[in-house]
């Protein structure tokens, strides 16, 4: 007959195992699927790496300039136009549904079984005078934004991969 102590040990072990599995699943989901970002806009973050990512997609999708990692009225109007065209609820907030929609527009530059270096995904919109593009990098540790010259403005540097998940605008560092 198992003692009370045995039952407690078994129960505790089960809880710990469940927590570990949940943490691993969450980590895999956040790094691979790019859908667990915090909301951006009046409903969430108004500065930092996630704002850079959202503005980067909006620059390609609506012509928003500049990408500076600081949420403003122009960013909100661009979000509403993006949401309306894509059938989303129009609230000006880059929420989960909007993030998922943006993620679906990304296309790998390299063949999917090859690990590209540098920017490896792109959102591209055809435009009357050519195209508008936004680049991203799916590094091992995090997603990053790669903003083109002419679109980026300080504190966002162009042609650098900026971490998407940081509160501040920071160049990606997987070692850290």
């Amino acid at each position: 007959m198992p003692t009370t102590r045995t039952w407690l040990q078994a129960g505790g072990g089960t809880v710990v195992a469940a927590l570990i599995i949940a943490a691993v699943a969450q980590a895999m989901n956040s790094s691979a699927m790019w859908v667990s970002n915090d909301p951006v806009g009046e409903c969430g973050q108004t500065s930092g790496g996630a704002v850079v990512a959202a503005q980067n997609v909006l620059s390609a999708g609506t012509g928003l300039k500049p990408v500076d990692g600081l949420w403003d009225a122009e960013s909100e109007v661009a979000t509403k136009a993006f949401q309306a065209y894509n059938g989303l609820p129009v609230n000006g907030c880059v929420d989960t549904g909007t993030w998922v929609t943006m993620r679906a527009l990304m296309v790998s530059l390299c063949d999917p079984e090859f690990e590209c270096r540098g920017p490896d995904h792109r959102v591209r919109y055809a435009a009357p005078d050519g195209a508008r593009e936004a680049y991203f990098a799916d590094n091992d540790c995090d997603w990053g934004s790669y903003v083109l010259p002419g679109v980026a403005r300080s504190p966002v540097p162009s042609n650098k991969v900026m971490a998407l998940s940081r509160d501040a605008v920071t160049e990606i560092e997987c070692e850290g």
Partner: peptide
């Protein structure tokens, strides 16, 4: 107009 989807890409 924004809410109606009037501003959209090609």
């Amino acid at each position: 107009e924004v809410r109606a989807g009037a501003y959209h890409p090609l």
